[in-house]
Amino acid sequence: MKNFEYARARSVDGAIQLSTPGSRYLAGGIDLLGEMKEYIVSPKRVIDLKLIPDLGRIDTSSSTWKLGANVTIAEIAKSEPIRATLPGLAEAASEVGSPQIRNVATLGGNLAQHSRCWYYRHRDLHCLKRGGATCYAREGENKYHSLFSGNPCVSPVVSNLAVILAALDAKVSLRRGDKEVQLTVPELYSDAWGNPLAHNSLQPGDLIVHVEIPTPKNRSTYLQVSEKSDFDWALVSCAAAGRKTGDRWFEVSVFLGAVAPIPYRVESPLIERGELSSAAIGSISQSLASQATPLAHNGYKVPIAQALIRRALTRIVS
């Protein structure tokens, strides 16, 4: 890790003022310090956000809940209101890392984290995503990589929370200079679809302040499959959410994680119409196969994604 200046922000305005070209925000630090230790990024200044008041709050007082960017993953996983009302969010949080990571990692940091591609993270390599010429994964060892991508880089988004928050129609509020900007979760990642250098749509100096989650979707779930039984990245993750009124379903959405540089929306007229019979679920899951463009070593993710779509929808229905 190269040396840097360290500054502690006391307010969102203060953080923005401290932000200079080449500076980085520090919250939980798991992602940032990991990149710094491999010399992937070497910020001149690190701005510690953890003492900014208000960013650590979970506000459930209106129908749209507001979670501060500094709320830790552990707090999300343990929050009784979240477990009761947005179970998928609690499930996604409880699958993040390990207790030690969940205790420090934050909502904002989880959404803004960078690629875990092993070429990108390798200290001795300079891949496409790091500004080099080649995406080594495309022709190389790509068992953990994307089934869908709009650019030559095939590293997938790995944030668990992005997948469930996309399904819950959450909006991410950030400060961009003096302006407050609100992005949907798909918008937060859309730049990564087409731009190999992008991990998300954040611009330098952008600061995620909080996330707003509408709560009308009364059913949600998050599932992932990893090689290990615990503390492992998802090979594929899947979140499903919807509003059930009587026997009818509204606003159903299904997203996949770890298969594309963005949370990947599973599209189907059946989902749009809220048809979730077991036959319909089977057909939704089936349709994914024709859309995916697997690489040499990640074709196995297709059946996993299909199984997770089936299981997630079956779970919210039952």
């Binding site: 092993w118 070429y119 390798h122 390599l125 022709e139 060892e141 290990k228 615990d230 503390f231």
Partner: peptide
């Protein structure tokens, strides 16, 4: 079930020189 050193044919590096992707059995395994 888990362990394998993975080398890259294009660059010759070990791609998983860590416990994140060289996977050792943990408590739940």
């Amino acid at each position: 079930l888990y362990e394998e050193r993975i080398l890259d044919s294009q660059t010759g590096v070990v791609l998983n020189p860590n416990f994140e992707t060289y996977k050792l059995p943990g408590a739940a395994d």
